[in-house]
Every structure is written in C-alpha cells, then in structure tokens.
C-alpha cells in the first residue's frame, strides 16, 4: 500500500487549505509555493460539515410542511435517527473550444402564395468551460446524484468522525461522459440548424473527488419508515420520501377533470363553430394534457418523492448536473 503525506506544509508544518481543482497552493504561514499532486491526477477535497443534529431535524420538520405531503405528518411524523455521512462525488471541468458553421433556412411566402426559402449562413464560436458533478458511488435509496452546492469550507477535520462512502465508480468514465456532454451542450448553445462544418474540441481541465457531508434522517409515519437527506453545508433538504394525502390527490383530479374538460369543450365549441378543425384539436389536446398531469398526481401522489431516485449511477449519460457554467475568467480585472 502506497502512502503519501499531505495537508501540512512540507516546509513549515503549518496546516494548509486545499481547494478543488487547484494544483498550485500557497502556504499561509511561510509563503512557500506548494504543488499538490493527486493520485493518478485526481485531487481530493472534503467539505466541512457545519450542520448539527438539531438544525438537521428542524430542516426536516420544515420540509414536512412544504408541498403536498400528508397534512398530519407534523403530528404523526416521528424523527427516529439522524446521522452524517460523507458522500463521494466526481467533479470535472471541461473546456470546449471551436466553431460550428452552417446555415439556417427561413421560408417566406409572398402575396401570390409562392414559397421562397432563404438560406442564412451562420458561423458560431463556442468557447466555454462546463462543470459537471456526479456521485461516485451507488447512492442506493438516498436520492442524490449530483452535487448542487459548490460553496463551503474545505477541510478534512471531520474525516475521522464521519463515516465516508468510498468512491467506487470510474473516473475515466466520468471524464469521457463529461466530454461528451460538454460537446453536446456546446452544439446546443451554438444552435446552428444545418451544420456544414464543425471543428470543436473538448479539453478535460481536471477532475476532482469531492467528499461532501450529507445527513440521513429516518422518520416514521404510522408503521411506515421514510427518509430524507439534508445538505451538511447549506442545511437544505436534498431529497426525501414522504407520505402523500388523499385529499390533495382528489382535489388535483377534480381540478384536472373540470378544467381539462372545459378547455376541451371550449376548443370543440369554438373550433367547430368557426369551422376551424385545428382549434378544436388544440382544445382537446390541451384539455387532455391538463387531465394527464393531474391524473399522474392522483395515481401516484400517495407517496411524495423529492430528489433523484430513478436510474442507477452507472447510467450517468444525460444525468450529469450542469453545476455552473463560466466563460473564461479575466485575469486583468
């Protein structure tokens, strides 16, 4: 087992702060310039947990009152246990640079009804950094897949006291997925409908492993056991399951059937009356959509689920969270 030292200045022994993605550091005590080398190029950073048991339980109780959760959850919900864990995340920065050229077609109809197609040439530059995060293990039923917060104090101080989830997914897959996602997104940003020439490169700028503190709360409602997770830095509820309320379910479907039905009736009546078949159809479709939306809640609203519970960690494609997008930072500002 290879062992390496860290986290005290090798020149003066003072404690040093390591920020994510920064290889070059300054010692705050002796001013030495320091170089951090990750294992196989991966920097590791942990965030300091600033929440306590009480604030986490309070956040959960407040969360109970929000949304369409059971009205009696406040009285019947019993907080059972609450503990912090460190979850591993991959965080990547990918720079995309290039040009996408092509054209857009616009149709013009003149007075005689002739359709003329105009080609408008386009050249779009893309130059952006994209940052993605994704959980680095199977989150199981925690309902967390991305890192939503990027602020906070980096510190390894709690590492001894908080159980740490091992990072077990592949960093190379994360880099490859980020590259692909960044290219797709850059293409979307350029928005050239017909591409005749494209030269775009994606440069991985770095990958870090971030250990992020998350509190797991388990609570009961009757005989059932539910859970919620709370961000150990911001104190916000990240994900959770909660009992729903039949009253809200039936209100939803009552509203959906009445509004949806009347929209459909309005569309039919006006559309057919004016001889506009299209209007009638639009009315039916919109009315049906309102119905479908409320039906979903009616059918599945007995359990309220918040967070990223579907899919699996290995199926990261298309599920990376775009954390923040920055263009290049200016140096002389």
């Amino acid at each position: 087992m290879a062992i390496s030292v860290g986290l005290n200045c090798p020149a003066c022994g003072g404690a040093i702060q390591v920020a994510e993605g920064d290889n070059v550091l300054n010692c705050g005590y002796c001013g030495s310039l320091l170089w951090a080398e990750g294992d196989a190029g991966v920097m590791t950073v942990a965030y300091r947990n600033v929440q306590g048991r009480d604030s986490v339980l309070r956040a959960t109780e407040q969360w109970w009152r929000k949304g369409w959760k059971a009205r009696d959850l406040r009285e019947k919900g019993k907080l059972l246990e609450c503990y912090p864990i460190y979850l591993p995340f991959w965080s990547t920065t990918t720079r995309v640079a290039g040009w996408i050229c092509g054209y857009e077609e616009r149709r013009h109809t003149d007075r005689e009804g002739n359709v003329r197609t105009e080609r408008i040439p386009m050249e779009e530059m893309v130059l952006n950094d994209y940052r993605y995060t994704s959980i680095a293990c199977d989150p199981g039923d925690l309902g967390i897949r991305y890192l939503r917060n990027v602020g906070g104090e980096a510190s390894f101080a709690d590492f001894e006291s908080i159980p740490t989830f091992e990072s077990t997914t592949s960093k190379d897959e994360m880099i490859a997925t980020s590259k692909q996602r960044a290219l797709e997104e850059a293409r979307g940003d350029a928005n050239v409908p017909h591409i005749t020439f494209e030269r775009v490169i994606a440069i991985p700028k770095g990958i870090s492993r971030i250990y992020y503190p998350v509190w797991v709360v388990r609570y009961s409602y009757g005989e059932r056991m539910y859970m919620a997770t709370v961000d150990g830095v911001t104190g916000n509820v990240l994900s959770g399951r909660a009992p729903g309320d039949p009253l809200y379910q039936s209100l939803a479907v009552t509203a959906g059937t009445s509004i949806g039905g009347l929209i459909a009736a309005g569309g039919l009546a006006f559309g057919l009356g004016a001889g506009e078949g299209l209007l009638a159809l639009i009315g039916l479709v919109v009315g049906g959509a309102v119905l479908a939306l409320t039906y979903r809640f009616f059918r599945h609203g007995s359990e309220i689920v918040e967070g990223d519970f579907e899919g699996k960690a290995a199926d990261m494609r298309g599920k990376l969270m775009k954390e923040a997008r920055r263009t290049f930072r200016g140096f002389h500002t």
């Binding site: 009552t254 059937t257 009445s258 039905g261 459909a264 009736a265 039919l268 009546a269 119905l291 059918r299």
Partner: peptide, 24 residues
Amino acid sequence: SSGAYMAVAGLGFLAFLAEGLLAI
C-alpha cells in the same frame, strides 16, 4: 390496479366536456 383511478378521471373529464358543450 389503475382501473378505478382511470375510471374516475376519464368519466369526470367526459362529463365536464359534455357539460361544457351544453353550456352554450
């Protein structure tokens, strides 16, 4: 089964559609 859920939603929708037309 989703049957009962669908029946309530479907019948309700049709009833309101018919009543909307009748309202004219």
